[in-house]
Simulated scan of single mutants.
Amino acid sequence: MTEDPALERTRLTAEANRLRARAFELRRAGREEEAFPLWDRIDEISHWYRGMLPAVTVARCPETGEALSWPIDTYGLDGNFWAYDATIRRLPSSVPPAWLAMTGAMRLADPVEDTPFRAVPGPGVPFVVPRILAAPGVRAVLGEVPVGRHTGWTISYFGPRPGVPLVNLWGTNDYPVYVPGKRRGWATAETGVTDCDFDLAGWLESGKLRWIEPGDESASLREGADGCPFLDLPGDRRIAVVANGSVRRVAAIG
């Protein structure tokens, strides 16, 4: 292994993608046994990849002030963290007791990565999900997370569990259920653009939505719309689906 995790990630991700493509070719040709060593190597790389994901501070609990760090592949969309249908991730070792969910959005920069899978980084501007945030006692925190040359945003929800479906983890098709602060299982929720509110000013002024200044290493929570850099950002309100070096936009993802 090299000392530079970014270079090692690039090399091993490319190797795993090549091996996976070859393994599927062998399967289609009825030569499954020849693919067994390839899958063993892919598993080895996946184990390393999962462990090297950097923990990024994405929010601070509005109730307790506890920082929330999440392991995210911030190097680019070509890592299997972003594989929508077969993600490789690890969950945080702990979350604040009031944590509910984390979704996200991303402004894509050209050219996008040539991914051999579907990556679904969300709409091109940050948003909130009113069915969650409107619930009594629920608040959200918006933060910025660079992902390679792209600009990502996380939206984390905290508070008492509402009586509505939550929202899938950023870039995936399900979400972990914590009650409270302890993982109890998994669930899934379909969320399309009609479930999202991109007009953040009212949520900011109400105190339901707080934000972290980009680049603020202290991750201090800020309130109100004045000075918020996430208001009225230009970008597509549809959900991006990245695959094979191209992007298409959809109203909902299944």
Rank of each mutant, 00 (worst) to 15 (best):
M1N: 04
D4Q: 08
D4H: 07
R9C: 06
R9Q: 06
T10K: 07
T10S: 11
T13G: 03
A16D: 05
N17Q: 13
N17E: 13
L19M: 05
F24M: 08
R31M: 06
R31K: 01
E33P: 06
E33Y: 07
E34I: 00
L38Q: 04
R41D: 03
D43G: 04
S46V: 01
G51Q: 15
M52P: 06
E63W: 14
E63G: 12
E66S: 04
A67P: 09
S69G: 10
W70K: 02
W70N: 02
P71M: 07
D73M: 02
D73S: 01
G79S: 05
G79M: 08
F81K: 01
D85P: 01
A86P: 00
A86S: 04
A86K: 08
R89G: 03
L91R: 00
L91G: 00
S93R: 14
S94R: 13
S94F: 02
V95D: 09
P96L: 08
P97W: 09
A98R: 13
L100S: 02
T103S: 05
T103K: 02
G104S: 06
G104N: 07
A105S: 14
M106C: 09
E113R: 02
F117V: 02
F117K: 02
V120P: 11
G122C: 04
P123T: 15
P123R: 13
P123M: 10
F127S: 10
F127D: 03
F127Y: 15
F127T: 06
V129Y: 09
L133H: 01
L133Y: 11
P136R: 13
P136E: 14
V138Q: 03
A140L: 01
E144W: 06
P146L: 10
G152I: 11
G152P: 03
W153H: 12
T154D: 02
I155R: 04
S156W: 07
F158G: 03
R161N: 01
G163L: 14
G163Q: 15
V164D: 06
V167T: 07
W170H: 14
W170P: 10
W170Y: 14
W170F: 14
G171Q: 09
T172D: 13
D174A: 15
V177T: 05
Y178G: 09
P180T: 15
K182C: 12
K182L: 15
R183N: 06
G185Q: 14
G185E: 14
T188V: 13
E190T: 09
G192L: 05
G192P: 02
T194L: 13
D197G: 02
F198T: 14
A201F: 07
R210T: 12
W211A: 08
E213M: 12
A219F: 11
S220F: 05
E223I: 10
A225H: 08
F230Y: 15
D232N: 15
L233G: 08
G235W: 13
G235A: 12
R238Y: 02
I239H: 02
V241Y: 00
A243W: 05
N244F: 12
G245R: 09
R248H: 12
V250T: 13
A251W: 12
A251E: 15
G254H: 15
